[in-house]
Structures are given as structure tokens and as C-alpha cells.
């Protein structure tokens, strides 16, 4: 899930003051930001109270199912069209993807209410850790299911680096070195460490990423069609 954390309230106020907004509509997210306890119903209520204390009028709030889902968010904002029309700005308590989806769905200025920090694993309720960078070129097959791109602070594919001491990381000194963990787990599983893990293909993660299953289906259908036609001729 996408991990978010509260944005500095003074920055939110500065954003609202920047356009002279007095009335605000709030939107949250029923998915990640609800689990992260940053953009669910309780957090929206708290934000509404904080804004009222600061002298703003809150015209309403809504927590859609998934803020980053364009169809769902459009539907949600249509349901609340009156409250949104009554507002000068919409403040979104979701990740940046959700903020942009809301911005594409309403005609009011939209501001981020959270900071998006990482793609996180839920270790236990309220405890999140970054384990994957969505790099598009997975090396977990070589690294015993431990991602060095993410969990080594330097992102080294081959390690440990010269700072490892007693199996611990030199940058985050309270953590075990990711490469020590990798090599140990490989050994425990009777697997051989790769001689040298080759350089990463950063073109697998060019910005902006996009993927359309529809287009892929169309391409596959065309290919099947060509093969059938080719077989006949």
C-alpha cells in the first residue's frame, strides 16, 4: 500500500491563503490512507475541526472507496457536487495519486493534505516499512526475497559495502546489513550467491509509467488474427 503522513498544517494553510480560500471541502481515501490512519473518516473529522479552529468553513467531506480510481472518484464528487461548488478549494487526504485524481474530477483548486512517502509493507497495525521500489526490474530471484535496491540504504546490488560491521548497516546502524541477510538466507537455503549481480536496467522504470491491459488485449487479439490469417494463405 501507499504510505502517507500528515502534511505540515502551516503549508496547508499557506496553500489556502495563497488563493484566498475561506471554504474548504475535504476528501479522503477508503484504501491506503484509511489503513495508514491519515485519510480515513476519523482523520477527516480531525482535519475539519482543525480548519474550523483556524477560521475556515468546511462545506463537507467524503471518503471515496479508492481515491486514485478515476471512475469512482468522479462518481463520489458528483454525489457531493453542491458541497464542492460551495467550497473555494478541495483538500485531499490521500497519496499524490489520489490528489491528482480528485484534481481531474472537480473544477475547484485541489491541494494535498498529506505527504506520500513510500510503497509500504504493513508489519503490524500502524507500523509500515518500505520493501519495494516498484523498479520494474526485480532482483528478488537472486537475492533470496530480500530487496537490496530498497533495504540497502545505498541500493547496492552487490554487497556488503565497506562500512558493514558485525553484520550491521553503517548508515542505519540499528539495522542488519541487507547484504548479510541476503547471503545468509541464500546459504541457509543451499543457494549460491550470484557472482556479480549485473547493473540495473533503469529504463524499466522510466517516468511516467503507464500500462493498459486493454491495449495489450487488443495487441494480442491482432497477433492471433494475423497468425490465423497467415496460416490460411
Amino acid at each position: 500500500m501507499i504510505i502517507t503522513k500528515p502534511r505540515d498544517f502551516s503549508r496547508i494553510i499557506a496553500n489556502l491563503e495563497g488563493i484566498g480560500a475561506k471554504r474548504v471541502f475535504l476528501m479522503g481515501c477508503g484504501q491506503c490512507a484509511t489503513v495508514a490512519k491519515t485519510g480515513g473518516e476519523p482523520e477527516l473529522e480531525a482535519m475539519a475541526a482543525q480548519l474550523r479552529d483556524a477560521g475556515y468553513e468546511v462545506t463537507g467531506w467524503a471518503v471515496g472507496e479508492v481515491a486514485c480510481h478515476l471512475g469512482g472518484t468522479k462518481l463520489e464528487t458528483r454525489k457531493r457536487v453542491g458541497d464542492i461548488a460551495a467550497a473555494d478549494a478541495v483538500l485531499v487526504l490521500s497519496c499524490g495519486a489520489g490528489v491528482q485524481t480528485v484534481a481531474d474530477s472537480v473544477d475547484r483548486p485541489v491541494f494535498p493534505g498529506l505527504e506520500s512517502v513510500f510503497l509500504g509493507n504493513v508489519i503490524r497495525a500502524g507500523v509500515f516499512e518500505e520493501r519495494c521500489q516498484t523498479c520494474g526490474d526485480c532482483v528478488l530471484d537472486l537475492t533470496a526475497g530480500i530487496c537490496p535496491v530498497t533495504t540497502c540504504p545505498k541500493g547496492l546490488l552487490n554487497g556488503p559495502c565497506g562500512g558493514m560491521w558485525d553484520g550491521m548497516c553503517e548508515v542505519l546502524t540499528d539495522r542488519e546489513c541487507a547484504h548479510v541477510r541476503i547471503r545468509r538466507r541464500l546459504a541457509e537455503q543451499g543457494r549460491v550467491a550470484a557472482k556479480v549481480v549485473p547493473p540495473k536496467d533503469f529504463s524499466a522504470k522510466l517516468k511516467p509509467g503507464s500500462l493498459s491491459l486493454r491495449e495489450e488485449r487488443r495487441r494480442d487479439a491482432r497477433k492471433r488474427h494475423d497468425v490465423t490469417q497467415g496460416g490460411r494463405s
Binding site: K154, N158, V171
Partner: peptide, 18 residues
């Protein structure tokens, strides 16, 4: 993050072995 420009991006496009 241990140096005098802690806000810099550590590149590490390649590691020392590579």
C-alpha cells in the same frame, strides 16, 4: 546522509563491483 550535503541524492547507479 553522513556528509555535508545530506539532502543530496546518492546515485549508486553502479556499485563498486559492477
Amino acid at each position: 546522509r553522513g556528509g555535508d550535503h545530506p539532502k543530496a541524492k546518492g546515485v549508486f547507479d553502479l556499485d563498486s563491483t559492477q
